[in-house]
Nucleic acid binder design. Structure first.
Lengths: 168, 168
DNA sequence: TCCAAACCCTTGGATGTCCTAGTATATTGC
DNA sequence: GCAATATACTAGGACATCCAAGGGTTTGGA
């Protein structure tokens, strides 16, 4: 990893905002920028752990989602909705997972428009192993204190609800 | 935007983790997943505001960084370090900004390896207008309460420092 | 009954990110 | 002074994401 910067670039950006007379939005700007950067750091860690399994985060998420479905199968559009990504992203992920023999497509029994994604035994095994790796190498060492984890879940949960993700 | 889901998919994932005996990492998993999703929502908002200016977030960040540099110019490697992205990403952004007449490349006066990125008058003007738009349409309506903004800055600041972003 | 509107998935194109490798320039050490 | 190493940028490739558009399937109202 690169050498740490001598100063926090986001704190500097906040100072710049204040110097230019945008003090009223300097703090939210800093918070949002920090979320962007944190996501980047976390994604890099996750992808690093998944790489040995031949998985990316997008593919892992789909695999994990399927492994929790009772039947081990889901319609594409359902997966798209639950993962909250564009349908084309699911198409892309399924293409690659299918080529790797981890999932397969099957026609929906009653709706001819719908395609079901189904986990293969290999896919189920790999999902299990990848999850174990993520649990021990990323989630168990998240770098957030227990209280901060609770705060994040609360703050971001409210935000996501207000953004229209769910109506719970 | 899509119809809200009836249930929070991240809360459901957390329950799945607990059901599978991974209770010890279920909360950090939920927090990290929430950060991923929140970043996605915020990025979409930001890109929506920047689109009328012909800018993406990556290009805007570079433009904004240059506009705060005293001389209006920075070496590529400095920009890469401050934005905390790969050098090739900066090359990509500069290519497009240069094509749009917003920045230009000039040789470093003493180091032949280094290329300076310089803001054009058009670039400076556009940066100012785009920042005003982001301030009023995104940062001023972030969806986070004032106290939550402070919490986020604190929690994520600690995380980024521990991750090696800066040594402040 | 039947056709238009809605829905589902895929293709093609644009963008951004990273990695690896390659070229050019500086710096360091002998 | 010159060779070895380090640094700076760029080119090419792999992935993921989104949008726009197209083709097939269902549904619902006239």
């Amino acid at each position: 990893m690169a050498t740490p910067l001598p100063r926090d670039p986001i704190a500097d950006a906040r100072l710049n905002w204040e110097r230019h007379g945008w003090s009223d939005v300097a703090a939210p700007m800093a918070a949002i920028t920090a979320i962007m950067r944190t996501q980047q750091i976390l994604l890099a860690r996750i992808e690093g752990v998944l790489k040995p399994f031949g998985l990316t985060f997008a593919r892992y998420e789909l695999l994990a989602l399927l492994s929790f479905a009772r039947s081990g199968a889901l319609p594409m559009n359902k997966a798209s909705a639950l993962l909250q990504v564009h349908p084309t992203s699911v198409t892309n992920a399924v293409d690659r997972l299918q080529q790797a023999g981890l999932v397969l497509r099957s026609p929906h029994p009653t709706d001819g428009r719908t395609t079901l994604i189904e986990l293969t035994p290999e896919g189920r095994t790999l999902a299990k192993r990848a999850t174990a790796a993520l649990n021990s190498e990323v989630f168990a060492q998240s770098g957030f204190g227990d209280q901060d984890v609770d705060q994040l879940i609360r703050i971001l949960g409210t935000f996501r609800r207000n953004a229209g993700d769910f109506s719970d």
